[in-house]
């Protein structure tokens, strides 16, 4: 294939005057560097905008106070509590399910088996469903059909469906990367598959599993559209799983769209959310990199 491409590229080269080629090359280099500069600039613009407007509002009081006057004043304490509960429900439901599915796909089924392919296809479909459709489904299934109402439980379970593909995908990658010698040695020593899994393969894949977990939390924490009609808008401190609770991202949306004069607190909330998510995502990336690095050394 490369020969065909090369021949074509070279045939163009022969009739192109050298100066034109040099001009094109220089222009392209300039444009590509400019793109990188513009993209970095946009990132810095967005981030500095949120930091500059959010920082003056941010204080311990903001984090530990209840919102007053529809969120225009006061803080975000109940919202942070609701967000944590929603994330906890989502991860508690999705993590065991994700790990189990990944173990089944990597250790207990042949790659070509019909059941394995069916599960993989479903995970692929699930990964593609838009978040607003998850919201519609969560509302119809968890809130109405299962009669959970607008609650932390409904929101958390909806998010669990959403992050499941991420957890399965990362866990599968982690388990597949565990060296086959482990499996062979375990079999040679007469260990059962479950013992090998528990004592060798899962510990070997642990950093990847943890990174996947963090990515899942990051994705769930960023979600808004799937939560508006499942966990709802109520900004009081939630008393139980069955109370409605407002997530941080929903709080930002509500303050900026529905509450006149809510921008200042929306900025501060956005800053809190960004700092949390960037920390979680950076941790996940660092973990993955560290893990890859260790593997390289061992090899």
């Amino acid at each position: 294939m490369i020969n065909a491409h090369l021949r074509k590229a070279l045939s163009k080269q022969t009739w192109q005057p050298a100066i034109r080629d040099w001009l094109k090359n220089t222009l392209a280099t300039g444009l590509i560097n400019l793109t990188a500069l513009v993209v970095s600039g946009l990132f810095v613009w967005l981030l500095s905008d949120v930091v500059l407007h959010g920082l003056p509002k941010l204080s311990w009081g903001f984090v530990f106070d209840a919102p007053r006057n529809a969120g225009r004043a006061g803080g975000i304490a109940p919202i942070i509590v609701s967000t944590s509960w929603i994330l906890l429900v989502a991860i508690a439901a999705a993590a065991p399910l994700g790990l189990a599915t990944a173990v089944l796909l990597t250790e207990f089924t042949r790659p070509a088996s019909r059941f394995g392919r069916c599960v993989e296809a479903s995970v692929g479909v699930l990964a593609g469903v838009p978040s607003i459709v998850f919201g519609l489904f969560g509302n119809a299934f968890f809130c109405v059909y299962l009669k959970l109402g607008f609650s932390i439980l409904s929101g958390g379970l909806t998010l669990a469906c959403m992050v499941l593909p991420i957890l399965i995908h990362t866990a599968v990658e982690g388990l597949r990367a565990a060296p086959d010698e482990y499996r062979q040695a375990a079999a040679a020593l007469g260990m059962s598959r479950s013992a090998a899994l528990l004592h060798l393969l899962i510990p070997a894949a642990a950093p990847a599993l943890l990174a996947g977990l963090l990515l899942g939390i990051g994705r769930a924490g960023a979600e808004t559209a799937a939560l508006i009609f499942t966990s709802g808008y109520v900004d009081r401190m939630p008393g139980s799983w069955l109370d409605s609770g407002r997530a941080l991202s929903v709080h930002i949306y509500d303050l900026s769209m529905n509450v006149a004069g809510g921008d200042a607190n929306a900025y501060a909330s956005a800053l809190v959310l960004i700092v949390l998510l960037l920390t979680i995502n950076s941790l996940a990336m660092a973990l993955t990199q560290h893990w890859l690095h260790k593997k390289m050394i061992r090899l």
């Binding site: 967005l46 979600e223 930002i252 900026s256 956005a270 960004i274 998510l277």
Partner: peptide, 18 residues
């Protein structure tokens, strides 16, 4: 990668206010 992790509501908020 960090840009990919910023929540959509923050993109929307930045678009709305800036």
């Amino acid at each position: 990668e960090l840009l990919a992790g910023i929540p959509s509501v923050v993109y929307g908020f930045w678009g709305l206010t800036t």
